[in-house]
Design a protein around this nucleic acid. Structure first.
Lengths: 236, 236
DNA sequence: CAGGTTTCTGGTATGCCGTTCCAATCTTGG
DNA sequence: CCAAGATTGGAACGGCATACCAGAAACCTG
């Protein structure tokens, strides 16, 4: 034991905020039941410690979830280094897909994001997303008076769609269950009352065959078309 | 006691699924903390019974929430009797606003709706919303191949935006707190780093002055513009 | 209208949760 | 080397959803 070697950690590795958040994300990813999958007991066990030690680093569960959410969103959004020569459309698509994939990898993120954006819109998550979507919107030539409305609409769509599709994916295994799942839902729609649900029955087949990611991008394109097509303030 | 008089109720009023759901909605509305506001203990007390009696009528908390959600959504959507001579645009606006107001009155509805749509898309809630939004989309002359994509995009936006705005409203009292809340968030945005958040800072003022409902409808208009402007499948 | 069966009730018990508290242990600076 | 502070982890506490069950009420059937 050379001097200065062992001062680094008390156990296998010192407890830290980062390690706790990391373990929390793993737990949340593992169980698939969302926020309920994270318990301080399981966290204690995984980190080989007691709940008290965790509470020394983290105020409470809400803060832990907020920190985990922020970390993942930040990671998802900083994949575009802001100096790339992409078009505004491409930039928006990249940001949207970044969030989409993040929620897809961590299905609990969708609900957390929604909760957090409404609970504390001054926190770090909301401005981060808003800025990433809004900057290209501005470059698109949208008049300043519509900046807020256009960016908000985009953000709402991204969160809604990503959360929904990701939640679908989580149902089971990798690819196969997904087809079965869509098939089941589609069949359910086809079994609806023809008088009350003619439209839903009509699109049941499209539901069965659609590709989530493609559909997600189609929605983005739809909104962008609206944004650039109607630059005046109000509606016909 | 005339014969046949008392067979109707065992106590002041018989327990029933409807009465339980009604009380659950009241509890959820009252506490303002979402799903956590509903506990079987509080429900027992309010209904002057024990938890066991409630469990005889209702499988578990999840089912209770699902039933309450479905009831409110059904009520919100059946306000348009389907025989009115409105234009498709008006119909879509009416449906969207119906959901918006329902979520506004019952802020916990937003999260429940999202959760339920992804958990069981074959349930009654999803088809109801989908049908209400999709029928006017079809009448708009959208090509059949785009029905599913257009309706999905619309639904995602409505849910995202309504949930977010409603959650903002719930913060406090009727109207005054709302202005204070927006003011605080806006100030928070203005205090961001000018280098990292130029766009967000630029729209802080718009955030302060915007009207939720108007903004919500502007987003709908945006999407409808996109839907009718670009009836081909892909993007420029 | 008597007795058995089904429907419905409400209290009690269980096991997990977030959180608090605190004694014990490390680390550090003088 | 030793006090002071930082950090740990285990043992509570109160509250939650839910399971269980003894029995009351309603309803058949003769």
């Amino acid at each position: 034991m050379a001097p200065g070697t062992r001062r680094s950690q008390r156990r296998t590795e010192a407890l830290s905020r980062e390690r706790i958040v990391e373990a929390a994300v793993e737990l949340l990813d593992a169980d698939g039941e969302g926020e309920g999958g994270l318990t301080f007991r399981a966290l204690s066990e995984r980190l080989a410690t007691g709940p008290g030690a965790i509470y020394w680093h983290v105020t409470n569960k809400e803060e832990l979830l907020a920190t985990a959410t922020d970390a993942l969103v930040a990671a998802a959004l900083t994949l575009e280094p802001a100096g790339t020569p992409e078009s505004p459309h491409d930039r928006i698509r990249a940001v949207a897909l970044g969030l989409y994939d993040a929620i897809d990898d961590h299905p609990w993120l969708g609900a957390q994001l929604s909760a957090q954006i409404s609970r504390s819109p001054s926190g770090s998550v909301t401005p981060r997303i808003f800025e990433s979507l809004g900057r290209p919107i501005r470059e698109l030539g949208v008049p300043e008076s519509s900046w807020f409305a256009a960016t908000s609409a985009l953000m709402y769509y991204v969160l809604g769609a990503a959360g929904q599709n990701a939640a679908n994916t989580r149902t089971g295994g990798p690819e196969v269950d997904r087809a079965e799942f869509l098939d089941a839902v589609s069949s359910g729609w086809e079994a609806l009352d023809p008088d009350e649900y003619p439209f839903t029955r009509a699109v049941a087949e499209q539901l069965r065959d659609h590709d989530d990611r493609e559909q997600f991008l189609a929605g983005i394109a739809l909104i962008l078309a609206g944004v650039t097509a109607a630059p005046r303030g109000d509606l016909p």
